[in-house]
Design a protein around this nucleic acid. Structure first.
Lengths: 337, 337
DNA sequence: CTCTGCATTGTGAACCATCACATCGAATCA
DNA sequence: TGATTCGATGTGATGGTTCACAATGCAGAG
């Protein structure tokens, strides 16, 4: 009825059962040579029968390895990146402790989390697209524990896995230019956010490179609400534009709403491109042209890299780069002019 | 440069530093009486200086407590429930290992996760709105470790925390009836999902109670895509309806799109009510009338209940119920008839 | 028939915090 | 003053796994 408090079998239990020493059992469990075949199979049967599994705490105490990773999240729209990280963590044999911290990241907040967990984790993953903490800060905070940063600055010297926001944004803007648009407005993400800033800068530069004026812009915070408000600000300037590049899909949803309310048709009056390709983007009104990011690959690469650094401290510090991909739907069309 | 592999101070290190026994240090750290004031403060200074913290693995080995919980997720739209759970876990001093499993839940899949983690966690939280595993199954799988189920069936005998979907759905439907609607269609969630089924059943019953015909319905799977398709199915029946109750906001988004494409105006031609009040619901076209669920409270209650069960196995098995709340926006209006 | 070599098995100590118990000295009471 | 109590501190063993090393037994070489 109540909690039976089931007692886990230990090495000694198995040893007593079979009539050998715990060391012999240990050798069988850990696939060491020098155990007689007959002994080995007897031990294996007992292990099976008593459902022996090495006690993680004891293992942790002697080896210093816990097979637990910690994921520290600072992102708003993190939820799309999470499943792949969890999945690949398991795939590599690690459990993942997830911690969410307030934006912006501070050394103090990270320190206070790590005080509680640092002793029981093998490595850290920071989902932290912000410039507030650099490599030295993190190295210091992690006290020698391996870490990998997901979504940091393209070109950063940290051990990291990132999407190439620069070329991603370029693809988005090029798509609009190729369609003949000359007045391309922008709703950027927050400029203290690496992705937001990089996408904004790319918009600015590629417009300039094409002899266009990168001036009609407003900065949001990636929320649907800010997308709505920024679109309002842009419309309030009463300057003509036939295309709008939005820093992420969520803001694009807010922007679509504001444009509709202003009586503008998408894409006939304004072509809109988003960024991320969140699952619902294909169901916006109209379905959104956007930049897809392969979060599955992001999770896999992040875990793989972190685990390899845990296994061997000499794995070089590098940045692994993934590339976004343009997905054309119904929110963009040829400029009728 | 490389990993300095910083050595954590132990009880003995502090003891040697101060010139007392490890036991005395232990007493100071654990706030036990019977330590001379002078000794206590000398020890405290050394603890401070060497940044001593009890080694979690060793603590775990002797006490059997890890201060780690495991959250097992089976939900599609789990992302809105997660932050509050993580937050309140920390608040109560627990780290949380998050694991995502495929729907539907099976004993085998849960067992395989617990094989890896069960030895190092103090309790489990199942986010599992499915009937596949009952109390006995879970008790068996958890082997006496305390657990709490989030989002299970209203009225279930499991230790659980749930929203009252029945009264929530009744509020939504009543709102439509109060507005004078007589033909109320429905897009339900999956019927093997507790929330989906309960909301559907409530729609059915309350329409019947009001002398209305609960026949125009289609079942989706909570995805935006299914919302779009189900709306199409309903429209294809060419039967009149002036209101639509949708099983969650995400499907409502898909449905809005389908209704728009069919040339129907919201709310002039059709009033729409969703469920969940996800953050973007206020930015749909039009802003969605929906049922809000307080996920913050859900997280707090779940953690509080689980932690109390960990502390005292005699805490009674109960179901804690939270109530959704109607949020009226622009997608519903008086039936013009 | 002894000695070396090797496969097989076992012993002891370490990791670090915890808990039960032992010791010591000083203060209290009869 | 001797017995008792109590506060302050220390010792020893425990938990389960891991690792270095010791011990045993048997084979083949000399």
């Amino acid at each position: 009825m109540a909690h039976p408090q089931i007692k886990q079998a230990t090495l000694r239990d198995i040893a007593d059962e079979v009539g050998v020493s715990y060391q012999t059992v240990w050798r069988v469990v850990n696939d060491h040579p020098n155990v007689a075949k007959a002994t080995r199979s007897r031990v294996q049967r007992a292990v099976e029968e008593l459902d022996y599994r090495p006690h993680r705490a004891a293992q942790m105490l002697t080896t210093g390895r816990s097979y637990i990773l910690q994921l520290v999240i600072f992102e708003y729209g993190h939820s799309d990146r999470l499943p792949a990280i969890l999945h690949w963590g398991r795939e590599y044999g690690y459990s993942i402790i997830v911690t969410e911290l307030e934006v912006p990241p501070t050394a103090a907040s990270v320190r206070s989390v790590l005080r509680e967990t640092s002793q029981m984790i093998d490595g850290l993953l920071f989902l932290m697209p912000y410039p507030h903490l650099n490599y030295d800060d993190l190295s210091d905070l992690c006290q020698g524990r391996p870490f990998v940063v997901v979504n940091t600055k393209l070109g950063s010297k940290m051990p990291s896995v990132v999407f190439d926001q620069w070329n991603g944004a370029r693809s988005a803007v090029s798509h609009l230019i190729d369609l003949g648009h000359r007045e391309i407005a922008e709703i950027s993400g927050p400029l203290d956010h690496f992705d937001g800033a990089m996408r904004h800068r790319a918009w600015e530069v590629f417009l300039g490179n094409n002899g266009l004026e990168p001036s009609l812009t407003a900065a949001g915070d990636f929320s649907v609400c800010s997308g709505y408000l920024c679109a309002g600000q842009i419309l309030a300037q009463k300057r003509p534009f036939t295309a709008l590049f939005v820093g992420n899909d969520t803001m694009a949803l807010g922007a679509l709403r504001a444009l509709h309310e202003a009586g503008l048709r998408i894409p006939q009056d304004v072509s809109v491109v988003g960024f991320d390709d969140i699952p619902i983007a294909a169901y916006f009104d109209p379905p959104l042209t956007t930049m897809r990011q392969d979060f599955e690959a992001l999770g896999r690469e992040s875990i793989e890299y972190l685990v390899s650094r845990i296994g061997n401290l000499d794995v070089p510090i590098q940045q692994r780069v993934l590339y976004p991909e343009l997905v054309i739907r119904k929110s963009t069309q040829q400029n009728p002019v």
